[in-house]
Design a protein around this nucleic acid. Structure first.
Lengths: 130, 130
DNA sequence: GATAAGGCTTCCAGTCACTGGAAGGTCAAG
DNA sequence: CTTGACCTTCCAGTGACTGGAAGCCTTATC
């Protein structure tokens, strides 16, 4: 398979696949013409990467997960630990965002949103009321 | 005030303040020795920026908000529009994260996390079960 | 007056995970 | 044989900083 075939089938853009090769996540073969040549196994790995990235794992986490995926003697505990750490990061981020959301939705609710200059949002940001 | 004073009082690192000058968000004066010299007004703006950033506004949104903050003839509707757009982005991000969280916490729950290689997390990522 | 510590300056490079674009080689169809 | 769609590499840019180097300025102490 050429890169655009594997791109279509994996759902990843060609650019991203080249990038993944650059940083050593995959090693496609090369044809006589210099074109990358992908096997079904390469496709599998790329799909794995796309799915892991979609779950928010960082590239380095993906690298670790991929190594475990390939390692038949792995302990599932190692996978679970990575996943749990990531889950904790997601939870942290969600609660940060929810905190922002709480503050901001309150402010938006308080703002008249008309043609007058008075604005509780700006007042809050400027600290005028604190 | 020198940069470290205004840094301490605004809560922003000196590096960040220099960066904000670089991109034109603030224009501190300069002393005869070339040092930046900050007034209370500059401090106020920096605090505004710090708070807006803490609410997740992008630098460009901050720039727009700061312009409105300084404009006494503003319409609060303009502020509210920016805030509502940002709020929508936050909501999008939260639901993306919640979706990731849902999937991942399910997988983590299903994984034994022992020394055996069988792992539903990897199976899901690899697409073996789909 | 010399010196040392600390603060200030600028500039360059790196982060993360791509993404866009330019310049040029290759391939299949008509 | 040309056209157009591929493919290649390399360079630069994104956002919002952050780290570090090299060098000037200030303040305190000896």
């Amino acid at each position: 398979m050429n890169i655009s075939d594997v791109a279509e089938r994996s759902g990843l853009p060609p650019k991203t696949i080249r990038y993944y090769e650059d940083i050593g996540l995959i090693r496609p073969d090369r044809g006589a013409n210099g074109y990358r040549s992908f096997s079904e196994k390469h496709l599998h790995k790329l799909t794995f990467l796309g799915r892991a990235r979609a779950l928010g794992f960082s590239i380095e986490e993906c690298r670790a997960l991929l190594a475990l995926y390939e390692d038949e003697t792995r302990a599932s505990a190692d996978v679970k630990r990575i996943a749990k750490e990531h889950l904790a990061q997601i939870e942290t981020k969600i609660s940060e965002l929810q905190s922002m959301h709480g503050t901001l939705s309150h402010l938006v609710h308080c703002c008249a949103g008309d043609d007058r200059p008075d604005c509780p949002i700006l007042e809050d940001l400027g600290g005028t009321l604190r």
